[in-house]
């Protein structure tokens, strides 16, 4: 089983708009994060680009389709393709989300919420152990944003902690998701951070969100807001062996704008700033 290597630093997501910048090798980041599914293809320009980026930057793989909370178990074909990509990329680590995406062979392509019950915990842990064994590596799972909360036996943070305890998996803490869900469901985000196991949090996501009709929506289309920056500072005081990455998937600005935002993360983290500092 490949363990997650010690790694701290500041990175960005690899998006088409910035391919030329990364291929030039001039983007001052410590790592780049790819959306795994975008590169789980047979060939062509996506893999050509990824191979070139891989020569210049450490890469982490972040997936959206593992559906680790699926009551029906995992898709063997998906896992095989993910493993093929991981073997090719040799990433620092592979992550996905604590969610499910569909049933009976149908896929919503959304990160759907789980009930935080003992039954769900057993399902998720069974699936994580299966995925980790298939991929031969310890995985990270990200806390999702959610827009509804089922009656539950435990809080989301307690669920995540138990999940790590039972499977040995690690966590990708999305600070924006904690904030969005805390507003939507009325919980204390600081207490949420306190309930997570310090040693298991290895990466942090930052992103922007938008205000929907009834609640906040995790849209990744705006800069990180002040409240999320404040929560990030709290998180960095507690979790010190982490890599930080800013996600932007819509209304993507020029790379310099994201790099300026990443500089804010470097400054606020209080962690040793790497690369471009």
């Amino acid at each position: 089983m490949t363990e997650i290597p010690p790694f701290t630093g500041f990175g960005l997501g690899l998006r088409k708009d910035h391919y030329a910048d990364y291929l030039a090798g001039t983007v001052p980041v410590d790592f780049v994060e790819i959306i795994s599914e975008n590169f789980m293809v047979d060939g062509g320009r996506p893999l050509f680009t990824l191979d070139a980026v891989r020569e210049r930057y450490p890469v982490v793989m972040h997936g959206v389709s593992m559906s680790i909370g699926s009551a029906a178990g995992l898709d063997a074909g998906y896992l095989a393709r993910l493993k093929r990509l991981a073997d090719r990329v040799n990433p620092l680590w592979v992550s996905d989300h604590l969610c499910w995406t569909g049933v009976a062979g149908h896929n919503t392509h959304d990160l759907l919420p789980l009930p935080y019950s003992e039954e769900a915990l057993e399902t998720v842990c069974r699936n994580i152990l299966h995925a980790q064994e298939t991929l031969g590596r310890t995985l990270l799972f990200e806390n999702p944003s959610s827009y509804l909360a089922f009656d539950a036996d435990m809080t989301e943070a307690q669920f995540l902690a138990a999940m790590c305890e039972r499977t040995g998996c690690a966590l990708l803490l999305d600070v924006n998701n904690v904030y969005v869900s805390s507003v939507n469901h009325g919980f204390d985000p600081a207490a949420y951070l306190d309930a997570l196991p310090v040693s298991r949090v290895r990466q942090i996501h930052l992103a922007g969100h938008s205000r929907g009709q009834d609640m906040l929506i995790d849209t990744h289309d705006a800069p990180v807001c002040a409240d999320v920056w404040a929560l990030y500072q709290l998180a960095c005081a507690r979790f010190t062996s982490v890599a930080t990455m800013i996600e932007r998937d819509d209304a993507i600005p020029p790379i310099d704008v994201l790099l300026s935002e990443l500089d804010i993360a470097r400054r606020l983290s209080g962690h040793g700033a790497r690369y471009a500092a």
Partner: peptide, 29 residues
């Protein structure tokens, strides 16, 4: 998960009548 999936993907209009009112705004999202 079957019920949730159907609520999210079924064609036509729905007001999620058979769901707890607390969950309906989220289902709509």
């Amino acid at each position: 998960q079957r019920r949730f999936h159907a609520a999210v993907t079924s064609p036509g209009e729905t007001a999620f009548e058979d769901w707890d009112p607390v969950l309906r705004p989220g289902l709509a999202v």
